[in-house]
Amino acid sequence: MGLQAAEPRPIRKLTVALRITLIVDLVFVVLCAIGYGLHALAASQLSPDDYVTPFYAFEGSGLADLVLMWSGLVLIPVGLVAGFLALKWSYRSTRNAHVFARGLENTPKWAIWWWFIPFACLFKPYAVISEVWRSAIEPDRWKGLKDPTLLRWWWGAHLAAGFGAMIGSAFERSATTAGQVMVHDLISLVAMVIQIGSTLLYLRVIGRIEPLQTALIAQGRRRPQDTGAPSWAP
């Protein structure tokens, strides 16, 4: 039993806004990755046992610190806007999915809340987007479809980037030598590169789903009434 059917709302403009914000975010993530690379290079010029920390400038780290500081400052507001738009996109696309198909397990509100619940955030947001995508491909028989490979790659990259950032943060708090700072920088650099890949994959995911839902809206698609009758019945 799904939510009560309502009029679907187009997601094209929302998708464009999300795409633009993510591209801006991507530019500064790339700059941040460059900053970590420069910082690691500067740390490598010191003796591995020299006392330095990631929080204070040391010889040769000036440019890297500048790049990291300004890219980090911009990433905070841009990331917040991108996160808000992504949640709104997830909510609206899930709401539309309930109009197109029956039997979806995740409601529009839970499409948002799953992101904030420990442990569940590791797999439930993926399940939400999976339902949205499959129900847009084949609304009547979406449960029989396999998850798109692109979706799996995106979610794997998303989780890897998150775990990489957590590991980098742990190293950052404990690093007290040039060698440890360099390890932290390299871990953070790898996490940023994976995040870049995750964002590019996510752009493709929303780019695939939006035209499918737009086409269903144009067709006037509505799910069959919850009467127990087969989907092909008149």
Rank of each mutant, 00 (worst) to 15 (best):
A6G: 11
P8W: 02
I11H: 01
V16M: 06
A17Q: 05
V24W: 03
F28H: 04
F28Y: 08
Y36M: 15
A42R: 02
S47C: 10
S47K: 15
D50W: 13
P54D: 00
L63M: 11
L66Y: 10
L66V: 10
W70C: 10
V74M: 09
V78A: 12
V78P: 08
V78R: 03
L85I: 04
S90V: 08
Y91V: 07
R92K: 07
R95Y: 06
G103S: 10
E105P: 01
W110Q: 01
W115C: 05
I129T: 08
V132E: 01
P139A: 03
D140M: 12
K143R: 15
G144M: 07
P148L: 10
T149I: 07
G156M: 08
G156W: 08
A157Q: 02
H158K: 13
A160M: 11
A160V: 07
G168Q: 13
S169V: 02
F171D: 04
T177W: 00
Q180G: 12
M182R: 15
V183R: 09
D185K: 09
D185L: 14
L186S: 10
M192P: 05
M192T: 13
L201M: 00
R204I: 10
G207L: 06
I209S: 01
G220T: 03
R222T: 05
R223S: 07
T227Y: 07
P230V: 06
